[in-house]
Amino acid sequence: MSPVTDAVAQSAQLGWVLGVMTVAFLTSFVGWTLWAWWPSNRERLDAAALLPLEESP
């Protein structure tokens, strides 16, 4: 292949990698957000927020 077509092929492969990474990272971000705001986690996380305020024994 010529250097130009070689570069295009590499760029296309890189595009796939970047696309898959974008989907994976976005999914994990949405996952963390859903987990943090999931109603069943509310009580546990609200209690966790009070940890620094517990008196030092």
Binding site: W32, T33, W37, L45, A49, P52, L53
Partner: peptide
Amino acid sequence: MYYFLPRAAQRPVFSYRLSIIHFWA
């Protein structure tokens, strides 16, 4: 900040959930 600010202000962090998203992002 997430430890010492609530201690100094004597109230929990505004949003603990936001702090989790803050961290990962």
